[in-house]
């Protein structure tokens, strides 16, 4: 599988939010830690619903968390 064209700033945002762990973020949005790991690595593009949930946890708009790069 190639890398997803959807990139994200989740790792940076976690760090800026009291160094939130992947497990804590996973519990807040209702997925497993492995799914957060896969999203951060670009191995999995989350559904729109999950993307909005993640953005809501960080209190930022969706575009601040995820970006789409067609070149990938």
């Amino acid at each position: 599988m190639g890398k997803s064209p959807v990139s994200n700033n989740i790792r940076k945002l976690r760090f800026e939010h009291d160094e939130m762990t992947q497990q804590q973020l996973a519990e807040k949005v209702g997925v497993t830690r492995q799914t957060i790991v896969a999203i951060e690595k670009g191995d999995y593009s989350p559904s729109l619903e999950l993307a909005f949930r993640i953005a809501r946890v960080f209190g930022t708009p969706l575009e601040a968390v995820f970006s789409f790069d067609e070149k990938n």
Binding site: G30, V31, T32, R33, Q34, T35, Y44, P46, S47, L50
Partner: peptide, 9 residues
Amino acid sequence: EPSITDERD
């Protein structure tokens, strides 16, 4: 073991 089955699973 993960207690939930999420959308990726």
